[in-house]
Design a protein around this nucleic acid. Sequence first.
RNA 1: GCCUCUGUGGCGGAAUUGGUAGACGCGCUCGACUCAAAAUCGAGUUUCUUCGGAAGUGCCGGUUCGAGUCCGGCCAGAGGUACCA
Length: 844
Amino acid sequence: MTAERFDPAVADGRWQAAWDDARCFEADSASTKPKSYVLEMFPYPSGRIHIGHVRNYTMGDVLARYRKLKGFEVLHPMGWDAFGMPAENAAMEKGVHPGGWTYDNIATMKGQLKQLGFALDWSREFATCDPEYYGHEQAQFIDLYEAGLVYRKESEVNWDPVDMTVLANEQVIDGKGWRSGAEVEKRKLNQWFLKITQFADDLLTGLDGLENWPEKVRLMQANWIGKSKGLEFAFDLSNGDKLPVYTTRPDTIFGASFVAVAADHPVAQAVAADSTEAQDFIALCKKGGTTAAALETAEKLGFDTGITARHPFSGEPLPVYIANFVLMDYGTGAIMAVPGHDQRDFEFATKYGLPIPRVVAGSLEDSGKPFDGEAEAGDGVLVNSDFLTGMAVEEAKAEVISRAEAGGWGRGTVVWRLRDWGVSRQRYWGTPIPFIHCDACGVVPVPKDQLPVKLPEDVDFKTPGNPLERHPTWKHVDCPKCGAAARRETDTLDTFVNSSWYFLRFASQPKDKAFDPAEVAQWLPVDQYIGGIEHAILHLLYARFWTRALAHVGALEVKEPFASLFTQGMVTHETYGRKVDGREVWYTPAEVERTGNGATLKADGQPVQIGKVIKMSKSKKNVVDPEDIIRDYGADAVRWFMLSDSPPERDLPWSEAGIEGCGRFVQRLWRLFAQAGNGGAGADAEVDMALERKIHQTVAAVAEDIEALSFNKAVARIYELVGAVEKAPLSSSRNSAIRTLVVLVAPMMPHLAEEARAQFNLGIGLVAEDSWPKVDPAMLVEDEVTIAVQHKGKLRDTLTAPKDASKEDLEALALASEKVQRSIDGAEIRKVIVVPGRLVNIVT
RNA sequence: GCCUCUGUGGCGGAAUUGGUAGACGCGCUCGACUCAAAAUCGAGUUUCUUCGGAAGUGCCGGUUCGAGUCCGGCCAGAGGUACCA
């Protein structure tokens, strides 16, 4: 390589190999240094790395490399979230085995990650589809089962009658199977559940301790867990039964004008037993779509059962309806309806001509105020409510609950929105659930010495349905308890289970068990977790749950796995499209020539429409392949682009001009590094104090910015310093500035840093193994500062003053300014505000 | 509907506890070098201007000596979520 140009095609590979040989990034659990666990959400091996991965892993890499320079023992691992549907789809479409397809993808993607020079500890790599990994997961599942955290329950699934398979909600489009197009049926299957609801309170209160999580994510989780407080009480029905209901507004109890039950409710079922009309109505309720859009427009429908419920205070009979808007799986599946103060009840009462009494109003005088076409759910004072009249809402709630409890007909309760986690998947490519069904012994766990329960290799994807179910021999086993012929469970675990503990396995990976608790305690919690906002709820909640569940069975001490969470934005690009025969056709950026304000298709020279700037996606074809841009610009330019300009939590618009600019900056730095020896004999003694200060300030600021993950600001600081060093006259300060700069840019541009140090003799050993430059606090303050002078709050002049100049001196200096005097123009000075080191404001 | 976040030049975006708005980058303009181009280097780049200044951070108002920042009310966009009783 010549010193003229930095050639990433040669340098990148050289240094990646050097880091590997030196085992730079292998974390040592025995180290006495302070630890730092930096983790990015591991990828699904879909085929190729996409640009979102590059951004995610570059951020984590900068932090990991920086922390290493700062003297931490850093754990920065990588692996593969390798089970899931796409592998099975590929098997069906291409006739390949899901395992072969997955491991091929892993090989490709690992090669791509290596090309980016990430400081990853590859010695700890694993894929969740490795039998060793999922075997330990099966053991954990059995432990949770034995601790009572796993149970089986009949549950409804989406069933595709053509593909003979269960579909996830996302695979049901307009009520039809996404692949077969067949009308999806609801089927009841016996499925496996995890008792996440047992930890609902703990998962909710635990959020308070996660100060270094985005507020947004904590809110989303809190809403998902959905704690609500209210009153549960039972109505006496005219047929002699009792009907429990749940309400969050017990204060409005005197406004109840009817009672409603869900279509699946036992009361509804009992009525339907001798009424075909009721049967028809229940069938009608079940037919309705469950999509948000369908519910938005769905009309409130009801069926009068003829039964009445006795109001607990007034004794009045209230009609009991079967209603389509009442859900069986929330609360008790039955409600007391208060049309005046609940919009759904209001619509229902309006349609069926039921009374709409007012029991809450702005003041007692408004007790007769009519409703304006909708319910009033707001705060106020109780009216028309017997002993509650005059009370505030909160006070009335407490009063009703205490009377119900005293009378023994109800109690204050907490209800959660969170449901138990259904983990059964009727799929091949997942962790087999390690249980055996025996006619005599029931459900029996596979003995631990027989784990892992491995997936069979010889499977057939040509026939629809679950290959495990159809396999000729796999499921036929003997019962571990009684030895009689029995059947293996053919469901596999939801892939979210795989990602619920992988961070523990990264920290510790003994052969004989999932992890060593002491070693895990040493690394956990993850100090910085980085990933996409799309995992804000499910993955992060499940991982928090699984960690607690393991702690519950005594497997570890840690409760919160991720001390600090960062959710990065997406990489976006404009779209290029054209209407062809009334249909939109999309083109990739590579197929398009950008011309000033417009764009044309290279193939025919005709214009294409420039569409919105949106997340890169295959369907809109607005994608760039990381491998192409690494080849064109080198890993460091790509990494630099990922960090520049946009704050990391926001979207990053990809642009050709932007990456070109980064490529130029890499070369500009290279030219500067090449000058490190140019101090010259005569200049060696010179010290450039201004430049020395600038260096210390920049080192301190960049460190702060990286710690805060404000990479765009760190980048701007480095640009500034580079500009200053370039312009500075030759001196020993300038030479040492260049040496410092090499280390300063190393977390972002590691290949360039190593190559420059080696090529220009700028130090000994690998930059990756070096330490972060020391900052002298005395060098962070300037002796002279610029003071702004305002008149009536507007800037009139700036002046230079010693940093500790007194208020009096500053005021005198300010008044001496010609520009300021011209602005004051002889007016009387009423007040002068002086902020030392900052400004003087003169008020006339 | 509810909850959360975001609105700053042509673009991405900076801006300590309220204290010089537009750092830094991209793009663009002009100049140098070159036969020419690329690369590189230098100067400029919020708007208006009578060249003194004036206006300006989505809109309207408020607090303050001073507001991008704080308060009240709107508007727009993004995300989350929902017949959750």
